[in-house]
Nucleic acid binder design. Sequence first.
DNA 1: CGGCCGCGTGAAGGACTCGTGAAGATGCCG
DNA 2: CGGCATCTTCACGAGTCCTTCACGCGGCCG
Lengths: 224, 224
Amino acid sequence: MTRLLLIDDEAPFVRALGISLKAYGYDVTAARTGANGLAQAAKAHPDIIVLDLGLPDMDGLDVLDALRGWTTVPILVLSARHTDETKVRALDAGADDYVTKPFSMEELLARIRAALRRRPERVEDPIVETDDFRIDLAAKQVTRDGTAIRLTPTEWNVLEVLVRNQGKLVSQRQLLQEVWGPQYETETEYLRVYLAALRRKLEPAPSRPRHFITEPGMGYRFVP
Amino acid sequence: MTRLLLIDDEAPFVRALGISLKAYGYDVTAARTGANGLAQAAKAHPDIIVLDLGLPDMDGLDVLDALRGWTTVPILVLSARHTDETKVRALDAGADDYVTKPFSMEELLARIRAALRRRPERVEDPIVETDDFRIDLAAKQVTRDGTAIRLTPTEWNVLEVLVRNQGKLVSQRQLLQEVWGPQYETETEYLRVYLAALRRKLEPAPSRPRHFITEPGMGYRFVP
DNA sequence: CGGCCGCGTGAAGGACTCGTGAAGATGCCG
DNA sequence: CGGCATCTTCACGAGTCCTTCACGCGGCCG
């Protein structure tokens, strides 16, 4: 299901839009403030964000900036203001589309569909095999010698990021950002702990990792 | 240069828009009819298409359909009609954006920039090969005879700057600034140490460098 | 011809990072 | 309320990397 984050403070509007969007099969989360919106975005990783520029606690453009600092998720901006300057600034700040109130629900839905359609298809093979274990990304399961291995949610998230970038070096920054959110960018101890856990559960010789490679000072790399 | 195809039949409008777009660095081609537009698109493979729905020979939506039959290039639709139904149909037919006339040039330019920004990251080959080793910039990995070579973070940064400017001379100043920061501009000893490390790890004959060339008094140059 | 400057090379101290085990903190379940 | 799984935080030893220094070589210029 497509997850949509709606950042807007007008309760009736949010309610109406939420109902319509849910009717069309979106999984809608709402945030009433910019700060909350940023937190929700970091936590839930929505597939698209609908952002109203008129927020009680922050300038909408600052919210946009903060989001674009770490994510490329499509962002559709709503606004009652329709000066060219605001439009241009929002679009250049990384908004994917800009819709001026009032607008019809049909148009908004069509623009959301258009923004989502552009999403690069994730056609990657959801199963990755190594000599020692097998990862099924779709089923969220890891098996070793035919038996399933239990991973905690966080362990799984770390594994998934590394596997989706297999062969490539994933910087500590990127890993922390994608698993814990943008405000944890410096908590490198988490990585040490969770990489140790993954190696203990998956590597044949945890102290001599073959698949979860540390590149000192830079990040980690998964090699099948 | 970004190539833009403008499909519109109103001569004054095309002229005005063409001038503005060219001033902003776009390489503009114009077509006055739908048929001609389709032909131009097939021939020139533009980076973005701006399509007016009001054309003399064909329905704009049919032009859109025909284009989407074979290309995913961003298409920005212009129209004097602003019924929701048309908007929705155009967006669902594969338009990336829909702008209603009249609009300001600034807004159109901003929307063009936004559409181009979304373009799938340039697949520009991030792999550089020499006779002796292979550099994968995306994966941050260097291999020699099939085996990976470990580089320290600083070594990698130096290498990356040189490789991204391959063939060109990189001044000591620029190298120091890009790797260590602006306040290290005179610490040329660092360069000697790290260039030596790179040559030791990558050059077949470190004392006779073939790829990491010193230009005395000026800087360094990487040649594949 | 001789001194000087820039460059290459090897080595060493110290700061920083990583792996590891374990203990506290938190949240969820019955 | 208590037990359990999970997340967070901590401390320490081992290892890695950055910086700095000393020395030798070669070209350049007076």
